[in-house]
Nucleic acid binder design. Sequence first.
DNA 1: CGCGGGGTTGAACATTCTCAAGAACTGTGG
DNA 2: CCACAGTTCTTGAGAATGTTCAACCCCGCG
Lengths: 241, 241
Amino acid sequence: MIEKNVHQHPHSCQHNIGAHKACVSLVPIFNHLEEDQMDEIMVTAQSVSYKKGEMIYRAGEESDSLYIVNNGKIRIYRLSESGKEQLVRILNPGDFTGELALFNETTHESYAEAIEAMVDTGVCLIKRSDLQAFLLKYPSISLKILNEFSSRLDQSEKLTTQFATEKVETRIALFLAECLEQNDSSHTFELPMTKKNLASYLGTTPETISRKIHELEEQGYIKQKSHKKIEIIDLDGLLLV
Amino acid sequence: MIEKNVHQHPHSCQHNIGAHKACVSLVPIFNHLEEDQMDEIMVTAQSVSYKKGEMIYRAGEESDSLYIVNNGKIRIYRLSESGKEQLVRILNPGDFTGELALFNETTHESYAEAIEAMVDTGVCLIKRSDLQAFLLKYPSISLKILNEFSSRLDQSEKLTTQFATEKVETRIALFLAECLEQNDSSHTFELPMTKKNLASYLGTTPETISRKIHELEEQGYIKQKSHKKIEIIDLDGLLLV
DNA sequence: CGCGGGGTTGAACATTCTCAAGAACTGTGG
DNA sequence: CCACAGTTCTTGAGAATGTTCAACCCCGCG
């Protein structure tokens, strides 16, 4: 991996409220704020941008900020004890990370890497101390964050249960069905990541992904329009796999 | 499973502050409260007790309370889409559950079952509305809960990564090592659950647990003193499995 | 003392991984 | 716009890992 080489964003500035608001207003945690509350937290924010392959943070590093994605994509992954990596999630604009260590006074447990080639990945930083002061001042925002944490915890436990009880083919089928749910209105959607990354996310290998998707196609449940586009033909059948 | 058949605890009473404090003061979320804050939340609490096999709640049911374990044991498990169950955690006195739906206005995603035969399992209930009002009044407690959620989320993601990247033998080894950490001061400890439940927790079968533990024993890393007691002989070796 | 549940063991079977090779794709630089 | 380089993706075959099913044991409890 490329060594850390953080470039300040051209527009980086502690008081560039307009630009920060545009990005932060997308975040579910903050999108219900009053105009003046929004300004209050935004003046404390900073921008940084990263080129493809650069690391935003690594496991073991001290953590003291919330990272909100402005543009580009970030890959969050973990390393197991034996050094194998698992993709935890892909962040798109409006998503955030760093929340784990934010309330824990601890260090990062995962790795965050910019992965978009075409565009630099821009993030907006809010310092832990600023955020905590803000939460103490406006307690209702804590409830919002607790809400967000709850559903993320729920998702994580759900995924763990899937790993514990379902075979790879079923996990893939469930993942495809979930993709469909998000892009509703159509039976065709684009995979949100490469199949290699999907394999890492689902705890399997690219080879197995390739084969199982091929099987699902032969059984008539789905159809691969291209490498990344998939059409769901028989959702009910797919979910019974 | 036994149908729901909730018995009011003999001491159940909305204002039995003394008894509730004894139980709740063990909970990490609350154990830093002022005396009068503690009283304030405790007057809103209720007690209920369950016999072995009774369900405290089920997936799909409306959730409106935090459950704090007073005595006995509770088994939290989830069902996957295909109906197989995975043990999520075992609650002992001082542990709590119900937090997921607490901040989500949603329903339970898991099942909670009393599993102690000898003693009835007693829980202390705090209603969502009472707790939320309390949090808005004392914002610092939210930070404490956010902290707790963070580390639980971290643990859950860590476990997911283990499932995604490590084989069963390694997961067992890591679990045993973790048990040792908790019961430190000795190289011998008691398994916190039956091997059947351990299999469910680790996403495998009792047969495989049995065989792998036997292998670890033959390789000289551990020694089974009895069905539930295990001695770690070579921790470093164990962790390299 | 007998019952029932957990625990263990064996053998056949199913699933997935690994390794290897070639094809298809993406982005880069001419 | 094209050709090249580096990935990602696909497919095959053999090997490793874990599951299933069935039988049996053992222990705690009524």
